[in-house]
Each structure stands twice: as C-alpha cells, then as structure tokens.
Amino acid sequence: MNIFRFAGDMTHLLSIIVLLLKINATKSCAGVSLKTQELYLLVFVTRYLDLLYSYISLYNTFMKLFFICSSGCVIWYIREHKTVSQTYDSAQDTFRVLFLACPCMILALTVNHDFTVTEVLWTFSIYLEAVAILPQLVLLQRTKNVDTLTGNYVFLLGGYRALYLLNWIYRILTEPGYRQWIVWISGTIQTAIYCDFFYYYIKSWRNNERLSLPS
C-alpha cells in the first residue's frame, strides 16, 4: 500500500468521524442528506460482500466493517434518534435516488468483468459510489450558509477521492500490468463531481466566510 492510498483511506475515515461528531455534538443532522447516506450503505454492502469469502488483510477487513457500520450508524441517527431525527428536513432532501441506482445497475449488468452475482454487485457499487454524493451536494446548494462541519465532511470526502487518483497514478507507474479501467473511469467522474464544491469551499475558507453555494 502506498502513501496516497493510505492517506486517502484515512481522509475517508476522518470524514465519517467528522460527520458523526457533528451529529452527536450538535444533536442535529441539518444539512446532511439521508439519501446520500443510504446510497453509501448500499455501496458498502454490495462492494464488501467479499468479506464473506475472501481475505486481503486485517486492515482491509477492519476498514470495510467500519464503513458499513458507520454509515448504518449515521442512518440510524437520522431516522431513529429522538432529537436528531427531528432536525432532518425531508422536504429539502428530495433527490430521486432511483434515478441514480437504476442506471448504475443497468450499466453494471452491461459493463463488467464477469457476469456473476458478486462481480455485478461489486461493479454496481463502483458506479453508484461515483454519483452517491449528488443528493448531498444538491442539499448543500439549497441550504444557505452551510455549517462548518457539514462543509468539512464533504470536503474530506472529496479529498479522499482526489488522493485515490494519486494512488492510481502511483500504482500505474510502479506496478507493471496494473490496470482497472472501471474503477479509474468511475473514480475520475466521482472526483470531477466535487470540483465545483472545492472551488466554493476554498474560496469561503480563504475569505474567512461561511460556505454558501450559489443556486
């Protein structure tokens, strides 16, 4: 494992910790998209089915379990927690997730490495992760003055993707025969989706202002 991959994973881990911290400390999930969190849970569950039949390292196993459990925990907070659930604004979080999930499934059934259940679900998870942030970004755009922690959460999530791009470049240069086109193309699209957000996040940070996205 190279430093970019490790830094990417740690940034991903940190983003979730920031999100859980925000929810737990403020007892509010204002500005957090339940739809995105549910999509992430679906991404993790369909991708990490290999927990049941293959083992790569203790590190991988731990991280996979953490991602599944933490997104489950965020969903639980938003849906079930007595105080937090009251702060969820479902009227704003209206993205139609089937418009994301269905095309991803059709694409996974069409473009994959192997037409088996686990491989198609794994490919589906790669495609779905690329677009799963969209409900969250749309919600942020509707929210005037995004709170700092929610902004940081999305920034860290985008940062993790950017570090994965560097990880792939490093692996291409150092590992002969290393290639994974489905992952590269989806990952590049995923990172590109954050560009606009990055621009406004860095601008507001430099001007010392609260983040607000233009509608």
Partner: peptide
C-alpha cells in the same frame, strides 16, 4: 488473495 482487479482497494 486478490482474485480479480481492484479488489485490494476499498
């Protein structure tokens, strides 16, 4: 063991 591509990443 990694039996297909990309599966060692998260």
């Amino acid at each position: 063991m990694v039996d297909f591509e990309g599966k060692d990443e998260l």
